[in-house]
C-alpha cells in the first residue's frame, strides 16, 4: 500500500514555501475572506497568491488544496461560488468543502474538480460519508475528531473513498462545524465567518499580578503571576462547574498522534493532516520536517525517530485526543 500522504497548512505564501520545502505532499490553504475556517486578520491567499502557490508547489511535485469550508451566507452565495470557480481555474488539486449546497454547485459546475469533504462537515459515520460520495462524487473525507482509531478502522472497512485524519496541532473537543460557542460569546462563528474566538473580541486585562483573558466580555481564563498565558479560545478556557476552577472542556494541549502511525496505517487511513494555518512559517517548517522524517522512517520500516516537538506546543503538553477511548 502507498505511504501516507502528508497534508500541511499554510496561512500565507511564505508558509506555503516553508511547508513545500520541508516535505509536504500537499498544502491546504484558503482565500482572504469568510469562505474558509481560518479567516483571521492578515492571513490567507489572494487569487494572485494562489496562482504563485500552485506554480511553486506543482514545480516541486506538491499538491495544493483550497479550503472553502465555511457555510455560505443565505442570499449571498457569490463569494463561495467564486472561490470554487477560482480554485478550479487556478488549477488547485482539490477543494475542501463542507456545505451541501456548495458541494452540489461544485460538482455541477466543475465535474473534473476533486472534492474533499471538510472536517467542518462532521461526517462521522458510514451512512453520511456514502451520501456525500453518491450525491457529489466526494473523493476523500477529512474525519471529525470524534472517532477512536478502532472506529476509524471499522469505518474504512465499509467505505471506498479515502480518509484523512488530523495528527498534529490544535484540537477542537467539540464536533467541528457543529459548534456555536464562539458566536454565542461574540456573534462571530466558525461556520458563518470562519473565525473561532476572534481576536477582535479578545482583551487581556491585568488584575494585580494576574492576567485575565476575556472573550466578548466573558472571562475565559485567569493566569497567576509567572503562569504562562493562553489565547482565550473558548473551549480551552477555565470555568467553574461547582466551585473548582477547571479546564471543563479541554486542557490547552496539542494533538500529536505520531505514536499511532502503525495503528492508523492498519486502519487504512490515506492522509495525515497537520493543523495550523494560523501558525507562523517557523512552526510549520519545524512540524512538517519532523513529520516528514517520521513518515519516511515509518515507510522504510525503521523505528520512529524521537521528535522533539515539545518546543512548539504549549508547556510540552501533547495528547492523542479522541483517537483513544480514554479521552472521552
Amino acid at each position: 500500500m502507498d505511504s501516507f500522504e502528508l497534508i500541511c497548512p499554510a496561512g500565507n505564501p511564505a508558509a506555503l514555501r516553508a511547508a513545500v520545502d520541508a516535505g509536504a505532499d500537499a498544502v491546504y490553504l484558503g482565500f482572504r475572506d469568510e469562505t474558509n475556517a481560518r479567516n483571521f486578520p492578515g492571513l490567507n491567499f489572494s487569487r494572485e497568491d494562489l496562482a504563485g502557490a500552485v506554480a511553486y508547489a506543482h514545480a516541486r511535485g506538491v499538491q495544493v488544496f483550497v479550503a472553502i469550508n465555511t457555510y455560505p451566507q443565505a442570499g449571498n452565495l457569490g463569494p463561495w461560488e467564486r472561490a470554487a470557480d477560482d480554485a478550479a481555474r487556478l488549477k488547485a488539486d482539490a477543494v475542501i468543502l463542507a456545505d451541501v449546497g456548495l458541494l452540489a454547485y461544485a460538482a455541477r459546475r466543475h465535474p473534473d474538480l476533486r472534492l474533499h469533504l471538510s472536517v467542518q462537515a462532521s461526517a462521522a459515520n458510514v451512512e453520511a460519508i456514502r451520501l456525500y460520495r453518491d450525491a457529489f462524487g466526494v473523493r476523500r473525507v477529512v474525519l471529525p475528531r470524534v472517532l477512536t482509531v478502532p472506529e476509524i478502522a471499522r469505518l474504512n472497512a465499509e467505505i471506498d473513498i479515502e480518509t484523512e485524519v488530523f495528527v498534529f496541532g490544535g484540537m477542537c473537543p467539540m464536533a467541528e462545524g457543529r459548534c456555536s460557542l464562539s458566536s454565542y460569546a461574540t456573534g462571530l462563528s466558525p461556520n458563518r465567518q470562519g473565525v473561532c474566538s476572534p481576536a477582535s473580541h479578545v482583551r487581556y486585562e491585568p488584575r494585580g499580578a494576574a492576567l485575565a483573558s476575556t472573550l466578548g466580555g466573558f472571562t475565559i481564563n485567569l493566569f497567576g503571576e509567572g503562569e504562562q498565558a493562553g489565547y482565550p479560545t473558548l473551549c480551552k478556557g477555565r470555568f467553574l462547574s461547582g466551585d473548582r476552577p477547571a479546564y471543563l472542556f479541554e486542557e490547552p494541549t496539542s494533538l500529536n498522534a505520531l505514536e499511532l502511525l502503525p495503528e492508523l496505517k492498519a486502519a487504512k487511513v490515506r492522509a495525515l493532516k497537520i493543523e495550523g494555518r494560523q501558525r507562523g512559517k517557523a512552526y510549520i517548517a519545524a512540524v512538517v520536517a519532523a513529520y516528514r522524517k517520521a513518515l519516511d522512517a515509518f515507510a522504510k520500516g525503521q523505528a520512529l525517530p524521537m521528535l522533539n516537538l515539545d518546543a512548539v506546543v504549549e508547556g510540552g503538553a501533547q495528547t492523542t485526543g479522541a483517537f483513544k477511548r480514554a479521552w472521552r
Binding site: F40, P41, G42, A229, V312, E314
Partner: peptide, 29 residues
C-alpha cells in the same frame, strides 16, 4: 508564531488584539 505571541507573559498586549494579530500575520508572510 501567531498564537505564541499571546502566551509569553514578557509581551504585554493592550487594546485591539485583532490589530496586533493582523500585523503579526501580515509580517509572517
Amino acid at each position: 508564531d501567531g498564537d505564541a505571541l499571546f502566551f509569553r507573559r514578557e509581551l504585554v498586549i493592550e487594546g485591539d488584539t485583532a490589530l496586533i494579530l493582523a500585523l503579526r500575520n501580515t509580517l509572517d508572510g
